[in-house]
Write a protein that binds this DNA or RNA. Structure first.
Length: 371
DNA sequence: AACGCGGGGCG
DNA sequence: CGCCCAGCGTT
């Protein structure tokens, strides 16, 4: 290797050491972020908190963590409950596949591993719903294994401090930042370091309006020196948004309501809904059209249209939902719909529904979503 | 390698 | 309105 390359290499090694030290110093003297799972040593609770926090803000996840740990103090409690109850507790948190995998893993650990949570990174990352981030978090927090977490905070902090514009959502970027994070990791106290860099990213090196003026890494930060802080990190994905037109028919007969559990590979998997009709564009529902639709689609001659809502709008990350709700009273449960569940209001209260449906069900909140 | 998956908060 | 959040599983 050329002499000049050795010099650059040496400078890089020095920079890394300084950054590790500066982050730990900040953590030990100024980090006052408090969270219910901080300092937790029970791998079950660490795992639970990390799954809840995947792609989810700490403030949004906090109450869910408290509700779950209160209702399920151990992984055995969680494994033993009915699916519907667990989904009800997860209701509103989003990314419902997490809940499905949470239950699967709880039962796997309870039944196949005799209740012993795995205690090495390799075994932890093999669990369903646990990827590289979550495994590193559990391994470092619970067992002090030297694995660096790489989450949105870490991508941001490292891309700025080292002024790296490799896209964080590329395969190359993930590998590069993972390697870098493991080099910066304080091997003697991996758990504390991982906590430090994430808290630092969340409170100082924030996505918008980072607190560079009071940042203890200010002089070390390459992006700061080059005036590129606001340009980092770089992502190259442009997500396509599509609009969907959904009409839910709340069909009532014999004191019960038709309920359907969503199961296809689509949003709100495993949550419940009413009878859904999806169209490629806005449908102008009139009482006559609804009556005619009941006749044609449900083979129901006498249908009483109770109400037709306005168009409610909900913005998801990747979809815009335009929804209408139509309440229909039928004289009896039609033979064409006996395959569906017909439930009482009390039974429906036990089930998890998408946010949008719950908001419509609450008359006080309906108007806030009117398009 | 690319895509799909919720809901909320912020500028 | 667009961006981001203690990411992961599927194809």
């Amino acid at each position: 290797m050329l002499k000049v390359e050795w010099q650059i290499f040496g400078l890089f090694m020095m920079l890394k050491k300084k950054i590790t030290a500066a982050l730990m110093e900040w953590h030990n003297t100024q980090n006052n972020r408090e969270m219910p799972w901080k300092g937790e040593k029970d791998p079950y609770k660490i795992w639970l908190s990390e799954v809840i926090l995947q792609q989810t803000r700490v403030e949004q996840g906090r109450t869910y963590y408290e509700n779950f740990t209160h209702k399920y103090p151990t992984i055995q409690h969680l494994a033993a409950d009915k699916d519907e109850n667990v989904f009800k507790l997860w209701e509103g948190l989003g990314y419902y596949n997490r809940c499905k995998n949470l239950l699967f893993t709880a039962r796997f650990v309870t039944n196949e591993l005799k209740g012993r949570f795995p205690d090495t990174y390799a075994d932890i990352v093999a669990l369903k719903g646990v990827g590289p981030y979550t495994a590193a978090a559990i391994a470092s927090f619970a067992y002090n294994e030297p694995y660096a977490v790489v989450d949105g905070n870490v991508f941001r902090v490292l891309s700025r401090v080292f002024n790296i514009d490799t896209p964080t959502d590329s395969t190359e970027g993930k590998q590069l930042f993972t390697d870098l994070a493991n080099e910066v990791l304080d091997k003697k106290q991996p758990g504390a370091f991982n906590q430090a860099i994430m808290d630092f990213g969340a409170t100082i090196c924030k996505p918008m309006a980072p607190a560079c003026a009071v940042c203890p890494l200010q002089k070390l930060c390459e992006a700061r020196q080059h005036g590129r802080v606001s340009m980092l990190p770089v992502k190259n994905k442009v997500l396509q948004k599509k609009t969907r037109w959904l009409t839910w028919f709340k069909l009532q007969a014999e004191g019960k309501t038709l309920v359907h559990k969503r199961s296809s590979r689509d949003i709100w998997e495993n949550l419940h809904e009413f009878y859904l009709v999806e169209a490629t564009e806005k449908t102008t529902w009139t009482r006559d059209l609804v009556t005619q639709w009941c006749w044609n689609q449900l083979d129901v001659k006498k249908a009483e249209v109770i109400s037709i809502s306005g168009v409610l709008s909900q913005q998801l990350t990747h979809q815009t939902i335009k929804a209408q709700f139509i309440e229909v009273q039928l004289p009896h449960i039609p033979p064409s719909l006996t395959e569906y569940d017909w439930l009482s209001t009390k039974e429906i209260d036990q089930l998890a529904f998408p946010r949008l449906i719950n908001l419509w069900l609450d008359p006080k909140k309906r108007d806030s979503l009117l398009f």
